[in-house]
Design a binder for these strands. Structure first.
Lengths: 204, 204
DNA sequence: GTCTATAGATGGATAGAC
DNA sequence: GTCTATCCATCTATAGAC
C-alpha cells in the first residue's frame, strides 16, 4: 500500500508519539534520529515538524504525558479506596497495598514510557527537567503521606519516611527489569510477592 | 601551560578512561562525542585512537572493569567474613548485612561507573552485552545464594529467592538516586536504614 | 604519541512545491 | 499535511606529518 504524496491522516500525531516512545526506550533519545522516527511512521522527516517544534519538545511531551497520567490514575484510585468503613489503621494498610499493586500494574503496562521517564531525565533541557521533577515529587509524596499516616497510627515503623518512600519505589521499579508477561509468574502473583516484601519492610 | 606538539604522558590512557566515564555518566554514551572526551583530556580526537580501537570498545572496557572490580571486591570481603565462629543461622544474617552495607558503600563510591553500568546496556553491541550480563548475573547469584541458605536454615522467608534478590538489589540501588555525601545522613546511617528494611523484608 | 587535516556519513531543522 | 531537496553542523574514524 504505497503512500501517495499529499495523503495524510488525522492520527499522524499519535503515531509519531508512539513511534518516538518505542524508539527512545529501545535506543535512547540521543541515539534516535528524527529520520528514524519518521521512517517508523511512514512519513518523511520534514513532516514531523508539523507536530512538534523540535526533538526536545517531543521528548518532554512524552515524559510529561506519562507523569500526568500516572498521577491522575493514582488519585482516581486512591479516592475510590477511602472511607470504606475500616478503622484508620486498617485503611492505611489497605492504601499501602493498593499503592503497591497499582504501581506495579501501571508500570508494567507502560514499560517504554516508564523507561524513558527515568532514563532520559539528563537529556531534558533545564526548565523541562524542573517540570518533570516536580511531577515525580508529587507522586512520591503520595506514598510518603501513607507511610507517615502509618507511623503516626503506630501500624508502621520506618526509620525515615522520605528514604523509605524512595526505597519502596525503587524496589517496585525493579520489577521492570525482569518481568515479562507470559513468564513463570502471573501479574497477580508478582503483585503479591512484592506486597509481601513491602509490607514486611515497613511494618512496626 | 600550553601543550606542545609531541608531548605525551604515560597516564593519558587512564585520563581518557576517567574523562569518558564522567562524560558518559553525565550526558549518556550516544550524546558524548570523541571530540568532547579528547577535549576534557587535553588532546585532539585522533590521539584517542592510540588507546582504544573505537568508541564502543571504550564503553565496554569501562563497564567490564567496573563489574569485574565489583565482583572481586565482594568475593574478597565475603571470604573474610566466613568462619568467624558463629552458628550457621547467625552467619547467614551476618553475610546478608555485610552484603547490604558493601553494596551501598561500593556503589556510592563510584556513582558514575554504576550509572553507566545499568544505563548504557542498550548501547553495547550484542556480544559485549552478553559479556556484561554474565558478570551482572554472577553478582546477583552471590546475594541469591545467601538468601537460599537463609531459607534453608529457616532464618529467612522469601516467596521467591530470585525475585527477592532482584528486589533487594533494586532497593539498594535506589540510594544512588538521592544520596549526596555531606547531606543530612552519614554513610553509616544510610547503611543502617537500608539494612533495617532489607532485614525485615526477607526475615522469617 | 600527538598533531593537523579530512574523508565520508549522518544529524536537526528549514524552504518551497504540490 | 506531506513531499523533495538542501543547508549547515557535527560525528567517527583514518592518513600522514612531525
Amino acid at each position: 500500500m504505497a503512500r501517495t504524496q499529499g495523503s495524510h491522516s488525522d492520527i499522524t500525531g499519535p503515531r509519531i508519539r508512539a513511534a518516538a516512545l518505542q524508539l527512545f526506550a529501545q535506543h535512547g533519545y540521543a541515539a534516535v534520529s528524527m529520520r528514524q522516527i519518521a521512517s517508523a511512521v511512514g512519513v518523511q522527516a520534514g513532516a514531523l515538524y508539523n507536530y512538534t517544534p523540535d526533538k526536545q519538545s517531543l521528548l518532554f511531551s512524552l515524559m510529561e504525558g506519562h507523569m500526568t497520567e500516572l498521577l491522575a490514575a493514582w488519585r482516581a484510585q486512591d479516592s475510590d479506596n477511602r472511607g470504606d468503613g475500616q478503622d484508620a489503621a486498617g485503611q492505611v494498610m489497605a492504601r499501602l497495598e493498593a499503592f503497591t499493586r497499582f504501581h506495579i500494574r501501571f508500570h508494567l503496562e507502560r514499560p517504554d514510557a516508564v523507561f524513558i521517564a527515568y532514563m532520559e531525565l539528563r537529556n531534558l533541557s533545564e526548565e523541562n527537567f524542573v517540570a518533570i521533577e516536580a511531577l515525580r515529587r508529587e507522586y512520591e509524596d503520595a506514598l510518603q503521606s501513607i507511610l507517615r499516616d502509618g507511623v503516626r497510627l503506630g501500624v508502621l515503623n520506618v526509620p525515615d519516611p522520605k528514604i523509605a518512600t524512595l526505597a519502596v519505589i525503587a524496589m517496585l521499579n525493579g520489577v521492570m527489569t525482569w518481568y515479562r508477561s507470559g513468564g513463570r509468574l502471573s501479574l497477580e502473583e508478582v503483585e503479591s510477592i512484592y506486597w509481601d516484601m513491602v509490607r514486611k519492610s515497613v511494618q512496626a
